[in-house]
Each structure stands twice: as structure tokens, then as C-alpha cells.
Write a protein that binds this DNA or RNA. Structure first.
Lengths: 150, 150
DNA sequence: TCTATATAAATGCAAATGCATCGATATGGA
DNA sequence: TCCATATCGATGCATTTGCATTTATATAGA
């Protein structure tokens, strides 16, 4: 049976996690907006597709990677396609589906976003914590992941 | 001048922070939905108002506490008022403003949400990390806060 | 083979959010 | 006092999200 009430330490850590993650996302989004660039979600998708390469990805494979609902992926890909950043090809082995590939305009956009986004991350993380502390933070967060890794 | 590019450690910690915080929020929101309860944002406001007590708060004071935009607070308070969970009184010393107070129905609702939310936090945090680890996590996150405390 | 069920992706509609602005009151000089 | 400016809160409008459903294809079992 699961505990009904969190410890003081859990409640405090939870509150910090909620507040800090939202603050940092907001900072990063603000920086993109100020630079006239699209939101973080666009970067996430472009990043996944860029890493995958020419083979592309099926839309349903993006759901877990970018933590969007199925309809969210469907609509985001629609916008990316409308902007010429990705292209959709029919999936040769599955008549229901498609393959989504990043275009060269998409790669350019990814790089442009990274220029701003990466600088935000540096300012928000590297300026606040040492490399060792960042590793410790990543390790602790890793243990909260779902599903559990170990 | 601010660094243009984040360290590997910063990028990793950032990615974990983004992913884990979203996963955990989603879990907690799902639990509330399944219980037929309103979203976390409602809890945040009810919690602030409950802690403040009979004096209530001005809407603009909620902006920083719950990390919502001004119009977000305005509309959320509208919904809470429509549900009888808060009441708005004219601010005696400022003709532009109001005082928002939690009602007893609001206190009840806060307790009901906490029953589910607290259990989620316990399951997501206490079951994964020890009290010492939770304290370490909170401390590291605290250093990322904006604005910096020290 | 035929049928029932499952999966992939899109979409209509309602609700929520973001952006800009507005109306009202307050405040700080000239 | 009067005016320019700032602040408080609400809201019209466009965009985005959430939910439920739809269409199309695939798969498993009788």
C-alpha cells in the first residue's frame, strides 16, 4: 500500500521542483520569443528528427520522446510541415502511417534555436552550479524518472 | 559576458529536469483527474489563500506565488469564485482592487485535493529517494531559483 | 476468408492560454 | 490643483490544448 501523505522533505523537494522547473522553462521560452524563434516544443521535435537522420520517425514514436499527446504530435507536425521544417512521406510498410523527416530548413532552424536555447541553459545552469553539482542533480532526477530505470 | 554554449553536465541536467518535471506533473494531474478533482493550479491558489487566512490576498499578490500571468490569475479566480471556493471583496484602501478570500467550501476542496495530491507526491518522491536525498535535491534546486536567494 | 479488435493519425468542438488593450483608480510631480 | 504616468484587474480575439471521435489500415482468431 502506498503512503497517503508525503514526508516534509518530499513536499519541500516537490515544491522546489515544480517552481524551479516552471521558472526555468519560462526563462528559456522568453529568450526564444525575444529572438523571434518558435517555442521549445519545436526544438524538441526537430532535435529528435535531426538525431534520427534520413530514416525519419513515425509520428507515434515521437509521443514518448517529446512527451506530447498523440493529437499534440499530430498538430505540431502539421505546423512544422506548414513551415517547411519537416516533410511527411507515406510509410512503405504501413498504409496507416507516415515517416516524418527533417528538411534542411528544419536543420537550419534547429541550429538557430539552439544558439539561443543553449545560451539560456548555460546561463541558467552552468552559472549556478558546478559540473559536479550538475551531475549530482542529474543523478537524483534520474531516480525520479518514470518508468524507473533500474 | 554569458557563455554561449552549455557544458555537457548542464545540458544533461537540463534535459532531465525538463523531462522529469513534466512527467511528474502529468502523473499528479492524472491522479486528480481520475478522482474527479480540479487541476493543480486550483490547489496552488487555494493553498496560498488558506495559509493567508481571513485577511485574504490581492490578486496581484498571487501572480508571483503561483507563477501565473496576470490574466491567468484573473480568470482562475473567476472560475474559483463561480464554484464558490473563493470570494472577492472590494479593497477598502484601493478602489482599483479587491481582496480574495477562501471560503469554507474552498477549504474543503483544498483538503480533498490534498488527499490525492499528497498521496501522489509520496508515491513519486518518498518511494524513490531517501529523506537525505530529497534534502540534497531541494538544496540543488534552490540554487537554480530565480531570482537567486543569496 | 471473414470478422472483431487494435493501432495510426487526424479533427470537430469546447475549454484554456497568450497577447494586447481597456477602463478605472492611484500616485507623483509641475 | 491638474496632468502625466503607473498600477490593478478584466476582457476581446486569436492560438493552442484537451477530449472524444472518426477514418483508414493492420492483425489475430474463428
Amino acid at each position: 500500500m502506498t503512503k497517503a501523505s508525503p514526508s516534509h522533505q518530499a513536499a519541500t523537494a516537490w515544491a522546489r521542483l515544480m517552481r524551479v522547473s516552471r521558472q526555468l522553462v519560462e526563462k528559456a521560452e522568453d529568450a526564444l520569443k525575444e529572438a523571434g524563434l518558435p517555442p521549445l516544443a519545436w526544438y524538441d521535435v526537430l532535435h529528435e528528427l535531426a538525431e534520427t537522420g534520413e530514416g525519419g520517425l513515425r509520428p507515434f514514436e515521437l509521443i514518448d520522446r517529446v512527451l506530447l499527446a498523440q493529437y499534440g504530435v499530430s498538430r505540431l507536425l502539421g505546423r512544422l510541415e506548414a513551415d517547411g521544417l519537416v516533410e511527411k512521406l507515406p510509410a512503405s510498410d504501413d498504409g496507416r502511417g507516415q515517416i516524418v523527416r527533417i528538411t534542411s530548413a528544419g536543420r537550419d532552424m534547429r541550429r538557430r534555436i539552439w544558439g539561443v536555447y543553449g545560451a539560456s541553459i548555460a546561463g541558467l545552469m552552468d552559472e549556478k552550479l558546478s559540473a559536479e553539482e550538475l551531475e549530482a542533480l542529474a543523478a537524483l532526477l534520474g531516480r525520479l524518472r518514470h518508468p524507473p530505470i533500474g
